[in-house]
Design a protein around this nucleic acid. Structure first.
Lengths: 226, 226
DNA sequence: CGATTTTTGTACCATCTCGCAAAATAATCC
DNA sequence: GGATTATTTTGCGAGATGGTACAAAAATCG
């Protein structure tokens, strides 16, 4: 029940002991933690993505994070709070790789290809099976009943819509799309394509097929002529 | 704990007592059932759609169906089997309304409009909140871990793809689409649109917005010019 | 060193979980 | 009517579940 049996001896923590711990916490007072909250949250996220909220027990989480129940509770709150924090972490991670692609300068087609390739990497990763999109999974399960979670999911969905919309708007300005193109409608199709590969990845549709779907959708979106 | 307090006195069962019960079962031998398997399965489906597999307990199912646990077990098997039977029921129901639309003769645009309207009806129904698409919900949750369920989900996904593809193929033959149109790629977009509204409906996106998404997607698919 | 503070580990609780066995009940068959 | 058959009902039991109390452990502070 330890994350790294030995007490943290500056093994692979980014910064520790010597520098003041990030935001002016000169020294922690009591018994040191046996876990690294960040990596524990990552493990929890992995589990939640694989099994969903309801099917994941505190024992599972305890085993995966290497923290025992009370520590889990103290660090993240109850199971629901941990789920929420896990989702936020997911958004940060997934968002970061997307933002990178949205920022760089490149032709529309290439940008879309990279976005979907990155999405597929995320959805198909996982040693025990594809983990899909956590936003989609959460939408399908907890979002209906839990207003706070629903709000986060909605934020995720509309965030993607907006990113795609601005992407198509830019492309239109650069003359990559005809004057008649509707960036908003295209963005919805782009998002829908994300959602469909997220769903299908969970049904273990092989990457080749997902890539074919993506290719077809891109062709339509950039107007290879339907 | 009864479905209809009084023993079945030919109240609303489709066919009973008089006619031989469907497939030559002249008379049931022992104590008569206090429940109607069909309506019980419907109730179970409702619950599963609302809460998902893991979050639905046998007690929930027992209360909803009006059958006590052992009866449930005897009629449908364990929870997983009941889930599978519920899913099959869902597919029958949802499929039926779709097939109807796919069969009738009408212009492509109108056909698509009707399909999506019907889908929205299904996804947004439910007294306690939108229930979404059971195929999508199941894909997001149980499909990864359970091969049998996954196979059913895959069947549902590809079934929709094929229906849409044949729909576009027909439209192309009738000259409603340009010669360059790719029915398969269009079908993927049509399915993706189904999936995106299924996801969003679970996040309680209002119907108006979903209809706007559908309209935009249809415009692109029938080639209003992107 | 002893006091303080923070975290850990064990153990526990009340509740719920699924599945099943045994007994009661209600119909048909002879 | 009695035997047979099928279903309902009650209730159990072994185990899992989410959450918490409490004492021991491990660090810093004075």
């Amino acid at each position: 029940m330890v994350q790294k049996s030995k007490p943290p001896a500056a093994a692979n923590q980014p910064e520790r002991r010597g520098e003041p711990e990030r935001r002016g916490e000169p020294k922690r007072r009591g018994r040191p933690r046996a876990y690294e909250p960040d990596i524990a949250l990552g493990k929890a996220l992995d589990l939640f993505r694989k099994q969903g909220f309801a099917a994941t027990s505190l024992d599972d989480l305890s085993a995966a994070t290497g923290m025992n129940r009370p520590s889990l509770y103290g660090a993240f709150g109850d199971k629901r709070e941990l789920y929420i924090k896990s989702y936020q972490r997911y958004r940060e991670e997934a968002g970061a790789s997307m933002v990178e692609i949205f920022r760089q300068e490149m032709p529309l087609r290439q940008r879309l290809e990279r976005i979907y390739a990155s999405a597929l990497d995320i959805y198909l990763s996982g040693d025990t099976g594809p983990r899909g999109c956590f936003t989609v999974v959460t939408a399908a399960s907890e979002a209906v009943g839990d207003p706070e979670i629903r709000a986060m999911v909605l934020d995720g969905l509309t965030g993607l819509d907006k990113a795609f919309a601005s992407c198509f708007r830019r492309a239109k300005e650069k003359g990559e799309l005809p004057e008649s193109a509707d960036p908003f409608a295209l963005a919805q199709i782009a998002s829908a394509t994300i959602h469909t590969i997220a769903i299908r990845s969970r049904a273990r549709v092989p990457r080749k097929e997902l890539e074919a779907i993506v290719k077809g959708a891109i062709d339509v979106m950039v107007g290879v002529e339907v």
